[in-house]
């Protein structure tokens, strides 16, 4: 394979992987705290993409303003989902919250169909992000391909700082160990949970925005497959672990892009690889790469 083509694939894998990683971080935070697969997370991601589409393309706001508005709007939606659909079920069996999550996912997708219509809408990319940069050895890159992983790494780095260097981060980690004990330490558990949902949704919004720029269109069901794959990425990395989610996302991105790059005949099976890899990982290392072992006490 030529260097030029390989670099292209590498950058593609890196940016797809870091998008998966950004979404996976939201799954992993919520799962780490509530042991809940937030099925609606992929749809939150979709909302981020739609909000930025409306702000910049329909209402012609500058991109910087549109992005900020989209992140705020998506975060609010994420918080509302927690408040309305999950909070009343905190004391219920875990499965109830899970089914509620499926319901919310259904609701957001179809609400989007009602409000935005089911038609895919093209996104006009800002030209500055698409202007190819040419290197002397013939490698061509578009700025967007580099921007995506850079933004993702900065955000995950900031999140790690928050988790490991600040009080709310400490509270969040404590809750994931033992929610009852943390409550007794005087931590307002519901606020910390809301914080986790808010942060996860904000990151999903950023991922959604960058996704809309990279694959330039938005549609109501665009969150479904990336959402499930991001969850798989979170399981890869070890659910509950933020660095794990990012690593899992990158791994998945590389597997998908490189398998198609090297074996083009298998491109129809692209989506199956993720699931196959998931099942293999679950069988041989059920707690993922960085996850901790949970055992039933006898």
């Amino acid at each position: 394979m030529e260097l030029n083509i390989f670099v292209q694939h590498f950058i593609n894998a890196l940016s797809l992987g870091s998008l998966y990683g950004l979404v996976a971080v939201g799954y992993t935070m919520v799962y780490g705290i509530l042991r809940l697969i937030n099925f609606a997370h992929g749809d939150i991601f979709m909302l981020g993409a739609y909000f930025v589409y409306f702000a910049t393309i329909v209402y012609k706001l500058p991109w910087a303003v549109g992005v900020v508005l989209a992140i705020i709007g998506t975060t609010v939606c994420g918080l509302l989902v927690d408040r309305i659909a999950y909070k009343p079920l905190r004391e219920a069996p875990r499965i109830s919250a899970l089914i509620s999550a499926i319901g919310v996912s259904f609701f957001i997708e179809n609400f989007a169909v009602v409000v935005f219509t089911g038609m895919p809408r093209p996104v006009v990319q800002p030209p500055i992000l698409m202007q190819p940069i040419e290197f002397s050895n013939g490698v061509r890159l578009i700025p967007l391909g580099i921007l995506v992983p850079v933004v993702a790494f900065i955000l995950v780095g900031a999140l790690l700082w928050l988790l490991y260097r600040t009080k709310p981060g400490l509270a969040m980690r404590a809750i994931s160990f033992d929610i009852e004990t943390t409550r007794m330490m005087g931590v307002s558990v519901n606020k910390i949970i809301a914080l986790a949902f808010g942060l996860g949704s904000a990151l999903a919004a950023v991922a959604g925005i960058m996704w809309a720029l990279r694959y330039p269109r938005v549609e109501p069901f665009m969150g479904m497959t990336p959402g499930i794959k991001a969850f798989i990425a979170a399981v890869f990395g070890g659910i509950g672990s933020v660095p794990g989610a990012m690593i899992g996302g990158l791994l998945l991105g590389f597997v998908e892009i490189m398998s198609v790059a090297f074996f083009p005949t298998l491109s129809g099976y692209k989506d199956a690889f993720a699931f196959l890899l998931l099942i293999l990982i679950l069988l041989f290392r059920p707690t993922g790469l960085l996850g901790e072992k949970l055992e039933d006490k006898i």
Partner: peptide, 20 residues
């Protein structure tokens, strides 16, 4: 279009919250 599933999913959420 889509309204049918909106109502359907709302009902699912309501059932699970109020009569799980």
């Amino acid at each position: 279009p889509g309204m049918r599933m909106v109502i359907f999913s709302l009902l699912l959420i309501v059932v699970i919250i109020f009569r799980r």
